[in-house]
Design a protein around this nucleic acid. Structure first.
Lengths: 343, 343
DNA sequence: TAATTTTGTTAAAACGTTTAACTGAGGGCT
DNA sequence: AGCCCTCAGTTAAACGTTTTAACAAAATTA
């Protein structure tokens, strides 16, 4: 049905070997033949079949992209953006992405993604936290693996991370620049490396400015860092420390919950309390007031991960690189000058 | 490197043909052989290679998913959700999705997605409006094509659409149920089939209730139906018809713009004016008040498109089906009882 | 002119799988 | 015994491509 190398060969009155050599720009092909064959190729609109090439080269031209189900299904499209970045960069490198999810309760012995078993990928990009059991499974296939926004506790892999510590520092420095001194931190899932780092950034940011760290200003737990948790944490915080003038929430989802609580308490933002989040999600703009936050380049995470992958595949195998993608302050209207001076 | 059928054959002391026949559950294999081979397969963790199978069957096990760049890049992840649905359903059918974007200014003669040229897909799903030039290109490859949320003006394809007309009716009936009588419609890109249908639903909804259609209550143009357009359309509307008590915006993006304008005018929602959108985007929940809207099952669009594709591939080729996925009223706090009765 | 090198092309094997056609062994029938 | 089945498994060709070794012809050298 489809045009094959045979059709081209017949039409150009040469062997299929010659056609193949022309395609690969082999030196020992006469200019006339090259011209003629190339003409026919264009005429017939011939393109070599992926499957056939895959067989010969033992390369598929595909990269597997793995996400856990709960990351995939959650409404905020953070990892979708990462995927978008990966896909974009893959296209530049002439790769295709095969996407799949795995259960977040993956156990040793569970079935690996089909694209691995069928050898349908040349490498794997993993975005977000995954159960370590899957890594044991993957390692048997010694495919190159790169991580985005997660760093497995064991093993030494190339990885792309958000510069969470700098982000934390940036957030509190912004608040300090507005003369805030009593700055609170709210964070769920505090043991997650990214959130932990934001917390570290918070601490180091305030201490750098000579403000003493006050544990009463910090509400942290290991629950999911979502809106509900933000709401209840804000409640706890204000009951314990009603004197704070600014809140840094570990992500925007929690910040939105905080905002909801503050509104109900008729506490106006930013006049009474300034609020800053982290992530720069879509919803921030629709809030009233729009939420100041730390913007993270989500697509960039995916792009860089794919770059790392490409490096590995063209085995310019240096040691596994770690890349930190920079964050930026996104100043909107939920942060303003402190009014604690006159107290 | 990887385990092949040969390794299994050698280990089981049979020919590779036998192994293959065991895998395909061929009748003429003795139970003992079947058992033995299956044991070895499990032992070696053998899985047939996609590439090799693809060559033989002339099937890749991949489906191409095409989106225009601007649909892909826009911040509201509508089509991303459609993709998610497709991917989910594809996994059920043991397909993989190859994703790509095309330029929204695709011209006849432009290069088609690589997965088509390289015959790396068995079928194509197209989401959202695409330039018709690409269809001319695609048709040469006679691959099965299914559409989601767009219906090309020419040709007869299986397609999945949102039930926009019912959605429009649903929205105005909700408002009418709240005793509203002066109900406005705001819509950009009014010639887009989906938006046009919502407008038709609006008209038929109010006329069904015996309310006369009033063109002064309708602000429509062909600009992009986004927040800015919503803002300016709301302005136009209220300058022309300040007596309206409810607004149905053709989508949530415009509704958010409308809300912004109303707030600036110190017009309270829903006490002074009720507002309902269409789409149920993420941001709706973060608005103050949260936006009532018509919810559309985005993933469902993708799921159904993949179902159609699967039907075509297993050539249970009935005539090209059209599927309408149902919408639902999502009642939040931006709509309330009309207070026009006492005027 | 003969020997050698260079140049351009091709035949054939290989990649991993499927499957139609085939082979032999063991019955069961005349 | 001779014939024909059936059963269980194998051989070999095919899918579309790449690539190496082989080859023929042309060009160069001696």
């Amino acid at each position: 049905m489809a045009i094959t190398i045979k059709d081209v060969a017949k039409e150009a009155e040469v062997s299929i070997a010659t056609v193949s050599l022309v395609i690969h720009n082999h030196k020992r092909i006469s200019p006339e033949t090259k011209l003629k064959v190339n003409r026919i190729i264009k005429e017939l609109n011939y393109h070599p079949s992926r499957s056939a090439r895959g067989l010969v080269f033992q390369k598929t031209g595909n990269i597997g992209f793995i996400l856990t189900e709960d990351h995939f299904l959650r409404s905020e499209p953070f990892y979708t953006r990462v995927f978008i970045g990966t896909e974009f960069q893959a296209r530049q490198y002439e790769y295709y992405i095969l996407f799949t999810t795995i259960s977040s309760t993956f156990q040793v012995g569970d079935k690996l993604p089909r694209f691995i078993l069928e050898r349908n990928v040349d490498g794997i990009i993993i975005a977000g936290k995954v159960p370590s059991a899957i890594l044991d499974g993957l390692n048997k296939y010694n495919l190159p693996i790169a991580f985005a926004d997660y760093y497995p506790p064991e093993g030494n892999y190339p990885v792309v991370m958000i510069d969470n510590i700098s982000g934390g520092i940036l957030a509190v420095q912004h608040l300090i620049g507005l003369k805030h001194k009593k700055i609170a931190f709210i964070g769920g899932d505090i043991e997650h490396p990214s959130i932990w780092d934001r917390f570290q950034g918070y601490k180091s940011g305030i201490e750098k400015s000579g403000i003493k760290f006050n544990p009463d200003y910090c509400i942290t737990d290991t629950d999911c860092p979502n809106r509900e948790n933000g709401y209840s944490s804000a409640k706890k915080l204000l009951e314990k420390s009603p004197d704070i003038t600014a809140i840094f929430a570990c992500n925007d989802a929690m910040a939105i919950g905080v905002m909801q609580y503050l509104k109900e308490k008729e506490c106006s933002i930013p006049e009474d309390i300034s609020l800053i989040g982290f992530d720069d999600v879509e919803a921030d703009l629709s809030l009233d007031p729009p939420l100041s936050t730390i913007g993270v380049p989500k697509a960039e995470l995916g792009i860089e991960a794919m770059r790392l992958m490409s490096d590995m595949l063209n085995n310019s195998i240096t040691s596994p690189k770690k890349i930190l993608v920079p964050v930026e302050l996104v100043q909107r209207r939920s942060t303003g000058p402190a009014n604690n001076d006159h107290l």
